[in-house]
Design a protein around this nucleic acid. Structure first.
Lengths: 339, 339
DNA sequence: ATCATCAATCGAAGCGCTTCGACAATCCAA
DNA sequence: TTGGATTGTCGAAGCGCTTCGATTGATGAT
């Protein structure tokens, strides 16, 4: 494997010239640069990662801590992981994957051995033990998700409050006045990730403010669970003409199934909006209106922020990503209004 | 951040003694070791990763190339990724995640900059472009999955042929004589990963050998697709009393739904076995007998093999993992036999 | 003409570690 | 006893890179 000395010899310059030509940190004559580039190409030279880390105290590696608990939706996690890796590469960073079981110790290990330049944290829970470590390490870090205490941390997340309001607003625009919210399984509201309660609370609040009748029900991912949730909502909202789904993918399929059987036409008799879903709602029948969970832009932004921290100082702050509404075919004016 | 010189000073020895004490590559007096350990602890010393790579020409990092195409089942991929990371950590290796889009270039990059010691390749397709790169690089590598040409490669995978035979054998033991196979979507058999056709062919072959009536049908992951597949099988096998599922998770749920509606009792009227599934079949009603896709042991074994290659020479070979059958509640003797 | 400025390049120091060769001390078999 | 092994330790030589002066001409302002 060719090293910088080989390149220098072939190009007929000193190794420092090669280094400066490659990094661009000092001016180098155009002709020299060309000769060096040729030598690099000819030898298939790639700087040795270890040497670079040692001398430059930059590793060009980011740690990605991606835990996996029972209530993690794997496709969603995968989407975020993918987004982060892709974004990192666009800044010439590689990604070291840390998983559960190694969460805090792993972070400590890679940080204190100077293996990584920064940290991206996925699937942050309300009182995530990793936040303490990140604060303590003082390494450039960005969380995707919002912990209970954001003091000193930089966080990126979808604006769940805005998403809740947006989902309701669109339905109100269409003329709906009674809208239910089918939420996640009950356990998600008790502990852990806080996006679920954030969404619920804003939704109900927005309903109150705009004088729309709203109700909420948790939903288990079984047929019975979905029926219970739907019936529960109907009981609270006899005139319900629309339902917002803030729950996982399976529940969507089951709900459509149940509605088909009960001969409730979508969207004629019931409008549906899926909010904060990490999956495509295209393949459902009908395709469901959706406010997507922006894995791609969250990952992108998180990496950008780490890179910025690396480049200079960035004030810790929380950055909320504005929700977008994608119109498909699952909403319509309520039946009563249509008549 | 404390370095080895600090440790040496505190312990009152030379840095080489510290190095040897930590690596165990030369005998060091017990008392000295203790003093060094204390100094390490006191200073919170961690060897610098870059320096280690440079001096030791070992990075303790493995590249994991995990592509993500349309027909990748994210939970399955995730399970393998997790397994590999966990296994790698147990050998004190970290994992650098490479994704699609960077597949071959990424491998080349990390290899030629000596960023990684070895490679684990996930989701290998029949004519995977990454195999050529891996051969060319000559780095310790293990594929999880089996490409068309295994020459010079070390591969680990579930023994799909054996799994196919095992699924059928269990049903035959129970007295079934007419067994259908619901496969994946059609496209999977044309190109790409070869586990699907491997399973199908062995299944049909095993049927032929044992005089059991068998049939195969591809299955789209929609209600219509599942019904078409089921009806297609019934058309070929009017007396079908059992069906083997070698397809993705969604299809399982839909099938059970369809059967419930059609009032086909499971397992009384139809036995079901799920083969090579990466997900839990516990939560179905009834829980489905399964031959699991051993993500965990595949990942474990793959990492072991990379580590072995790192330690010494390992003959390239293909290693098939024996399938295991997990009895749940979805199989029973056929109705006719039960009478 | 004169001196600071800047572009272009080089040499050398050093990043923190591993590892080789040396050397002293201790050991046990002959 | 003696000498070849073995144990325990040290010093020093790199590993391949980045980066800090230093040097040499050329450039331009005065």
């Amino acid at each position: 494997m060719a090293n910088i000395t080989d390149v220098a010899r072939v190009a007929g310059v000193s190794i420092s010239t090669v280094s400066y030509a490659l990094s661009g940190k000092r001016p180098i004559a155009e002709a020299t640069k060309t000769r060096i580039a040729e030598a690099v190409h000819e030898l298939g030279y790639r700087p040795n990662a270890g040497a670079r880390m040692l001398a430059g105290s930059r590793t060009n590696i980011l740690a990605l801590t991606a835990p996996m608990h029972e209530d993690t939706h794997p496709p969603a996690l995968m989407a975020f992981v993918l987004a982060v890796v892709t974004a990192a590469r666009s800044f010439d960073y590689d990604v070291l994957l840390l998983t559960e079981g190694e969460a805090t110790t792993g972070l400590r290990r890679v940080a204190s051995s100077s293996l990584v330049d920064g940290i991206v944290m996925l699937d942050v829970t309300t009182d995530d033990e990793r936040t303490a470590v990140v604060r303590e390490l003082g390494l450039p870090s960005v969380l995707i998700g919002i912990p209970g205490d954001t003091e000193g941390l930089t966080c990126v997340d979808l604006d769940f409050e805005a998403a809740a309001r947006l989902s309701l607003a669109r339905l109100v625009e269409l003329g709906h006045t009674s809208v239910g919210l089918m939420g996640h399984a009950e356990q998600l509201y008790g502990r852990g990730s806080n996006y679920a309660p954030r969404f619920r609370d804003s939704f109900l609040e927005a309903g109150g403010e705009s004088g729309i009748a709203t109700a909420f029900h948790t939903t288990e991912a079984t047929r019975e669970g979905v029926e219970a949730s739907l019936d529960g909502l109907r009981a609270q909202l006899p005139d319900m003409t629309a339902v917002v789904l803030n729950c996982n993918e399976n529940i969507h399929g089951i709900l459509l199934e149940v509605l088909r059987e009960r001969e409730v036409a979508v969207p004629a008799a019931l409008s549906i909006v899926s909010a904060c879903s990490s999956f495509s709602t295209e393949h459902f029948l009908p395709p469901i209106d959706v406010i997507p969970l922006p894995a791609q832009s969250s990952g992108q932004r998180a990496v950008e922020l780490v890179v910025q921290q690396l480049a200079g100082f960035v004030d810790p702050h929380v950055e909320l990503i504005a929700p977008t509404y994608q119109r498909k075919q699952s909403t319509a004016p309520p039946a009563a209004a249509a008549l």
